[in-house]
Amino acid sequence: MTVQELIKIMGLTPLSTFEDREVKGVFISDMVSDVMTAAKSGNLWLTIQTHKSIVSTANLADVSAVVITGGKKVPQETIDIASKYNIALLSSPLPTYTLAIKLHELGIEAE
C-alpha cells in the first residue's frame, strides 16, 4: 500500500508536499533517538512529536511518512521543512493507540 492510498482509506490529512511511496510496517515513538535506532526503511511513523527535528529524523531513518496523531497542531516551520525535503507529513485526529489498531486491521504488520 502506498502513502496516497493510505491517506484515502484512513482519512488522513496531508500537510506537506511529497513523493508517493510504498508503506512497509509501522513504528511508534515520540523520541527521535529511538526512531533513529529502531525504525526501518519504509515504516509509517506515528508520533505526537511536532518539533521540526522530526523531519530530519524521518529523512535519516527513511520512513515512508510521518503521521502526527491526536490532531496535534503542527508548527508551520515543521511543515515547510517537510515540504522542502519531500517528507510526507500527515495528520490524524485519532490517538496513537486507536490509529495503530486501525492500521493493524487494515493488514499493515510490524516489519
Binding site: 511508534i28 515520540d30 529511538d34 505526537i48 512529536q49 491526536g70 490517538p95 496513537t96 493507540y97 495503530a100
Partner: peptide
C-alpha cells in the same frame, strides 16, 4: 485504556485513569 506515548505532558493532559502506559521512555 491503553496509552502509547513518550511525551509525558501529553499523557498528563489526555491520559485516563485505570490505563496502562506503553513507552520507550
Amino acid at each position: 485504556h491503553v496509552y502509547a506515548s513518550d511525551l509525558m505532558s501529553d499523557l498528563l493532559a489526555f491520559g485516563k485513569p485505570n490505563s496502562i502506559l506503553l513507552t520507550g521512555l
